[in-house]
Amino acid sequence: MYNKNEITSLIQHLIDQVATEAAGRLISTVEEHLETKIANALKGHKLLVDSDELAKQLMVSKSTVVKLRKQGLPTIRIGDSVRFDPEAVKQFIINKNKSLHYGDNK
């Protein structure tokens, strides 16, 4: 028969084992996700784009990109360079169009 201290110690040991395994799985999942993102970036799926590339993708002038920045287009600064996350830009445009659309209905 186990006494109370032995049971507590055994339970704590099991909790530690489960926590260690869960942390290992979480780290592994995050690493796999990052590896996939990096692999996609290397295949031509850019994680970030500059103003010229964004203008090209949106089929607008670079001055339009500057105007959008003044209206709150999200940017990422890396040193002196300004970059854009294509997904954040997409969401910004969707939200901007929704606000313009709902503004017309007032």
Score class of each variant (00 low, 15 high):
Ile93Glu: 04
Leu48Lys: 05
Gln57Thr: 01
Asp104Trp: 15
Leu26Trp: 07
Thr20Met: 06
Ser61Pro: 00
Asn95Ser: 11
Thr29Pro: 01
Gln91Phe: 03
Ser51Leu: 12
Asp85Leu: 04
Phe92Glu: 08
Leu34Pro: 10
Leu34Ile: 14
Lys106Cys: 07
Gly79Cys: 09
Gly44Arg: 03
Leu68Arg: 05
Leu10Gln: 13
Leu42Cys: 10
Met1Leu: 07
Ala39Gly: 04
Ala88Ile: 01
Gly103Cys: 09
Ser81Thr: 06
Ala39Asp: 08
Pro86Asp: 01
Tyr102Thr: 13
Asn97Ser: 11
Ser61Ile: 05
Asn105His: 14
Lys56Ser: 10
Pro86Ala: 01
Ile93Phe: 05
Ala39Cys: 06
Arg83Met: 07
Ile15Gln: 10
Lys62Asn: 13
Gly103Trp: 00
Ala39Gln: 13
Ile15Val: 13
Gly24Trp: 03
Gln57Ser: 08
Thr75Lys: 06
Gln57Val: 01
Asn5Asp: 13
Ala22Asn: 08
His13Phe: 07
Thr20Pro: 10
Gly44Leu: 07
Ala39Glu: 11
Asn97Tyr: 13
Arg83Gly: 01
Leu47Pro: 00
Leu100Ala: 12
Leu58Glu: 03
Thr29Val: 12
Lys106Trp: 06
Arg69Thr: 15
Asn40Met: 11
Ala19Met: 10
Ile11Val: 15
Thr64Cys: 07
Leu34Ser: 08
Ile76His: 09
Arg77Gln: 13
Lys98Asn: 11
Asp52Ile: 15
Val65Lys: 03
Met59Asp: 13
Gly79Ala: 05
Leu14Trp: 05
Leu34Trp: 02
Leu42Val: 02
Asn95Tyr: 09
Arg25Gln: 08
Ile93Tyr: 01
Val49Tyr: 01
Val18Arg: 15
Ala88Lys: 15
Lys46Cys: 01
Val66Met: 06
Ala55His: 03
Asp80Ile: 11
Tyr2Gly: 04
Ser63Trp: 02
Thr8Ser: 10
Pro74Gly: 06
Lys43Val: 00
Phe84Glu: 04
Ser9Gly: 15
Ala55Gln: 06
Ala88Arg: 14
Thr8Val: 09
Glu31Cys: 04
Lys70Ala: 14
Asn40Thr: 08
Ala41Ser: 10
Leu47Asp: 00
Thr64Pro: 00
Gln71Ala: 15
Ile76Gly: 01
Gln17Met: 09
Ser81Leu: 09
Ile7Gly: 02
Asp16Phe: 02
Asp85Tyr: 09
Lys43Met: 06
Lys56Glu: 14
Ala55Arg: 02
Asp50Gln: 05
Lys106Asn: 13
Asn105Phe: 02
Asn97Trp: 12
Gln17Asn: 04
